[in-house]
Design a protein around this nucleic acid. Structure first.
Length: 313
RNA sequence: CGCGGGGUGGAGCAGUUCGGUAGCUCGUUGGGCUCAUAACCCAAAGGUCAGGGGUUCAAAUCCCUUCCCCGCAA
């Protein structure tokens, strides 16, 4: 793809954003500065690790900025001094104040992992799966004060696979988002895109996921439970309690079996997994993870953990 | 030095509190049974108990230490 280079400031933090940044470099844009969240001690052992975006920026010798807050006159003047044409924000992790949004001549664009105005907010990918949607996508927008409420530039759609987890979708949409970003920049440059206001009537939100959402509610339908299990990965993950152990469930199948047992009752268990009754039939837990242990098939789990309960919670 | 769980034949686990014959559910291999089916029966092989050091007549088990895995928290 032929594009003339543009001076761009990139703001982003996680893996999802890193792919977009890589694509910008590979297409040949001039990245004059990268903003990412400050290094913090994370993970076991509290070791400080660099964000995926920072790692990419380091490899390309781009100046990196990790301000604690963007609402800072000094930061505003730093952004001005970089003299960029465009600011690109992908999963940065903080709101961008209007003082900064107004700086670049071509504006400030953002890649969001849903078909806006659906699923504004922190977890669009997971909510699309949890709700059982069959299609999602990525949207590029001009940024507005209100989060994810800007004028829409371009949209790329993709079907959601029946087996797909949020982890899978994250990976696919980060690639799709990177492609959309490049196309959007070209379109802005060529002035071939007409920004469209979002339709307020269609707005939905995808709030931050929390651990309270983890426990599986067996009184839901098999389909609903399966969507939760797929959507809540890799965090916070759907859980259930087997013999007083809270186990994470990673993979479940919907069966055609009808059962009169109460939701949560174990219908059968063995080589095929653990079959559990829900409101409209049953599902089979195929892959799980016990406390302290690794992820394994339900069949393996049963070899060392014979069930003594007849009910899950 | 953030908190905690774990490492035991090929897989999943018990045994560690209170040191004393290496155990369970599977898998594998051989045989039997059956019209047939690894469904069932019989038998066998397979282990540096994560690594190193120490205590002891004796260590999977107690003490010190290194490495690796997992969860929480951020």
């Amino acid at each position: 793809m032929k594009v003339s280079t543009m001076k761009i400031i990139f703001m982003g933090t996680p893996e999802f954003a890193a792919e977009s940044l890589e694509k910008l470099y590979s297409v040949g844009h001039d990245i004059v500065g990268v903003f990412t969240q400050p290094d913090r001690p994370r993970n076991r052992g509290m070791k400080t690790t660099f964000s995926p975006v920072k790692q990419i920026a380091l490899m390309n010798n781009t100046p990196i900025y990790q301000p604690i807050s963007l609402k800072d006159d000094e930061i505003v003047s730093v952004v001005k001094r970089l003299q960029c044409d465009l600011i690109v924000v992908v999963a940065y992790g903080k709101k961008i104040p209007s003082d900064i949004l107004n700086i670049p001549s071509l504006g400030c664009i953002n890649i969001h992992a849903s078909i806006l105005p659906n699923y504004r907010g922190a977890s669009p990918i997971q909510h699309a799966i949890i709700n059982g949607d069959t299609e999602t996508g990525v949207t590029s927008q001009y940024m507005s004060e209100e989060i994810d409420a800007g004028e829409i530039l371009l949209i790329k759609k993709t079907p959601i696979g029946d087996d797909e987890t949020s982890t899978d979708l994250f990976s696919r949409l980060s690639t799709l988002g990177a492609e959309l970003l490049i196309e959007t920049i070209s379109a802005i440059e060529a002035k071939t895109v007409i920004p469209t206001l979002q339709n307020d009537d269609d707005v939905t939100y995808a709030p931050l996921l929390t651990k309270d959402m983890s426990p599986i509610d067996w009184s839901k339908t098999a389909h609903e439970i399966r969507c939760m299990v797929r959507g809540l990965q890799p965090w916070p993950t759907a859980t259930t309690i087997i013999d007083e152990k809270t186990v994470k469930t990673f993979s479940v199948d919907v069966t055609n079996n009808m059962t009169s047992l109460l939701p949560g009752s174990i219908v059968s268990h063995g080589e095929h997994g653990i079959e559990v009754a829900c409101s409209d039939g049953s599902i089979i837990i195929k892959e799980l993870q016990a406390p302290g242990g690794k992820r394994m098939s339900a069949a393996d789990f049963l070899k060392g953990n014979p069930l003594s309960t007849k009910h899950l919670y």
